[in-house]
């Protein structure tokens, strides 16, 4: 009897603990959401108000001042395009690394990852110049290519790990059954690893969606995504917390909803090897 009681207490503590951790992690998003419905005055007040008269005035002003849909569309095209392009390159690359390794495969993989250690700003000037010479400043194509390239190492690594978890026998069985390399890939490998591929794609989508450095430096108006819109609210006229929160909320809402909807797939993908 006491043992059961003890277990119940432990369970309660774990639940409360989990909620506290979850709230801490979620707090910035929550605070952003709350601030976006405050007046600028409420937003600045110290100590902060948890209870206030909500207003939609920030959203109205933002939508009046900027064409939200234009930026959102740019974000969808660049992040989506980069994800598709990245997957098209990463899946065959990971396939080659995983199933036809050479003595130097590990080195190549490490080298790919090492490019992620280079600070973006270090290559800003050359890439800016390349884009300028190719007449690709302020173009969505440039962003798509750059987003795909900067996420490629992570994508290849992730997919490589998922592929390594798939028994090679299955692919050999497909070969014996008469499948070509393409058929093996599309009818066996990709369906079998779809959880991992989906979570890789989603991660690339999120990273590209929230990418700001290249968006800010390489776009001005026609190709500017949502991150550029957010940035435009933080500078010249001083800080407007409420409006900044509102525009940030608008910027991350679509990806948040997408992440929420695909969370089962995402979690399964990220724990693929562990629960096989």
């Amino acid at each position: 009897m006491t043992r059961r009681k003890h277990n119940q207490t432990a369970r309660t503590i774990r639940i409360v603990g989990s909620w506290i951790v979850a709230l801490i992690v979620f707090f910035p998003i929550l605070w952003m959401l709350l601030t976006s419905f405050k007046s600028e005055l409420d937003a600045f007040s110290m100590p902060p108000h948890f209870f206030f008269a909500p207003t939609l005035e920030n959203y109205e002003q933002i939508l009046a001042r900027a064409n939200y849909l234009h930026y959102a569309w740019n974000s969808i095209v660049t992040a989506g395009g980069a994800t598709i392009l990245g997957m098209i390159v990463a899946v065959p690359a990971a396939y080659a690394f995983a199933y036809h390794p050479t003595l130097k495969t590990k080195n190549v993989l490490l080298w790919m990852l090492s490019t992620k250690m280079l600070p973006s700003v270090g290559v800003l000037v050359p890439i800016y110049l390349i884009c300028r010479d190719l007449n690709m400043l302020d173009s969505k194509t440039a962003l798509i290519i750059i987003f795909a390239l900067i996420n490629l190492p992570i994508m290849v690594w992730m997919i490589y790990t998922y592929f390594r978890d798939i028994p090679y026998d299955i692919l050999e069985a497909a070969r014996m059954d008469g499948a070509s390399t393409g058929q093996t890939m599309f009818r066996v490998l990709i369906p079998v690893s779809r959880g991992g591929l989906a979570s890789t794609a989603l991660l690339c989508l999120i990273l590209s969606w929230n990418e700001a450095f290249w968006s800010l430096n390489l776009t001005t108006a026609s190709a500017a995504p949502l991150t550029a819109l957010v940035a435009s609210f933080s500078s010249p006229e001083g800080l407007f917390w409420a409006k900044l929160s509102a525009v940030s909320t608008l910027a991350c809402a679509p990806i948040l909803v997408l992440g929420w909807l695909s969370q089962r797939q995402l979690v399964r993908g990220l724990t693929f090897g562990a629960v096989k």
């Binding site: 026998d169 299955i170 050999e172 070969r175 014996m176 066996v188």
Partner: peptide
């Protein structure tokens, strides 16, 4: 080529297509 030999193999790990 493997698929032109007209042989079939049964693997130790079964190697069934899980999907």
């Amino acid at each position: 080529a493997v698929d032109k030999r007209d042989l079939a193999m049964v693997f130790q790990s079964y190697a069934l297509y899980p999907h």
